[in-house]
Design a protein around this nucleic acid. Structure first.
Lengths: 134, 134
DNA sequence: GACACTCTCCGACAACTGTAGTAGGATGCC
DNA sequence: GGCATCCTACTACAGTTGTCGGAGAGTGTC
C-alpha cells in the first residue's frame, strides 16, 4: 500500500476529531485543553499539525473569525464510526457482520438494559424479515 | 505515538497471517501463492520481509525443515480478532461494547439463520443474568 | 516603542509499514 | 564444471502518522 490509499485516520487524528465532536467548533488551544483534560500530553503545535492534516484530508474545516482559527468537524461521528467498523469487518471477517456481532455478544458483558434493547432490536429485525416474506 | 507502542499489525501483515491461519504452516512461496490467489500482487521478497517482521513481533515462528523455512502462526486468529475488536471499541466507544453491537444490528443485514442465532444468544444472556440474580 | 503573548507556518525527525531489488549461498541438471 | 533455480539476508525507499521546535506576524500593555 502506502500509495493509493489516501486518507485514513490515525489515533491522534481521531482523538482530535472527537474533541470537535464533543466540544463543538474549537480553536487549537481549546482542543489542546480538551486533550489535556483527557490525559493526552501533547504540545500546542502537535495539535495544530494534526488539525491542519485533518483539514487537508477533508475531515475538518476552519475559519478565522477572531484572533485564532476555529476548526469544525466536517464529517459526522456516525459516518466515521460506520466506516471504521466496516473496515474492521472487511479486514477480519471478509465483510460479514454476523461473526463480529456473535463474537461481541459472546465475549462482552452487557447490562440488563442493554440486553433488553438488543432483544427488542433483534425481534424487530425478525419481524421485518417476516413482513417482507424473505 | 511512534514510540512505545511496539507491535501492531498492518494490513499486509494481517493478510499474511491469514494465509497461515487458512492454509496452515507454509513457506514463503506458498504464502505468496495464496496471496496471489486472493488477488494481492506482491513480490516474493515482500512476503519474506513481512514474515520476518511478523516473526520479530512474535506473531509467527519458523523452522527450516527442508529447503526453505516453514512459517507457522504463533497466535490464534481468535486472539488477534478479539484484540482488534477491543481496540476498535476502545477507540470509538471508550471501550463499551453495546454501542457497537447496536450499530451493527441497525446498519447491517442478517440472514434468517443469523437472526435466529442472535436471538438465541441474547436469550441465553438474559437467562444467565437472571440466573445470577444480578 | 519595547516586551510579553498568542497564533500560524514551515521544516524536521523518528517509527512503522508496504514494497521490492540485489547479492550470495545451496541445489539440481547436463 | 557451468548454468538455472530457489532461498535467505541485507538494504533501501517512500508514504503515513505522531510529535515538536523555531521563526515571524499580530495584538495588547506600560
Amino acid at each position: 500500500m502506502a500509495v493509493e490509499r489516501q486518507f485514513e485516520l490515525g489515533d491522534a487524528e481521531l482523538e482530535v476529531l472527537k474533541a470537535l465532536w464533543d466540544a463543538g467548533p474549537a480553536t487549537v488551544r481549546q482542543v489542546l485543553a480538551w486533550l489535556h483534560h483527557r490525559g493526552r500530553r501533547v504540545a500546542y503545535t502537535t495539535v495544530l499539525t494534526v488539525l491542519t492534516r485533518l483539514e487537508q484530508k477533508g475531515f475538518v474545516t476552519s475559519d478565522k473569525s477572531g484572533l485564532a482559527y476555529v476548526y469544525r468537524a466536517a464529517v459526522t461521528r456516525e459516518r466515521v464510526t460506520r466506516k471504521r467498523v466496516k473496515a474492521l469487518m472487511q479486514q477480519l471477517f471478509d465483510g460479514a457482520a454476523a461473526p463480529l456481532v456473535l463474537q461481541l455478544i459472546q465475549n462482552e458483558r452487557f447490562t440488563k438494559g442493554e440486553i433488553q434493547e438488543l432483544a427488542k432490536l433483534i425481534e424487530d429485525l425478525d419481524a421485518a424479515r417476516r413482513g417482507r416474506r424473505t
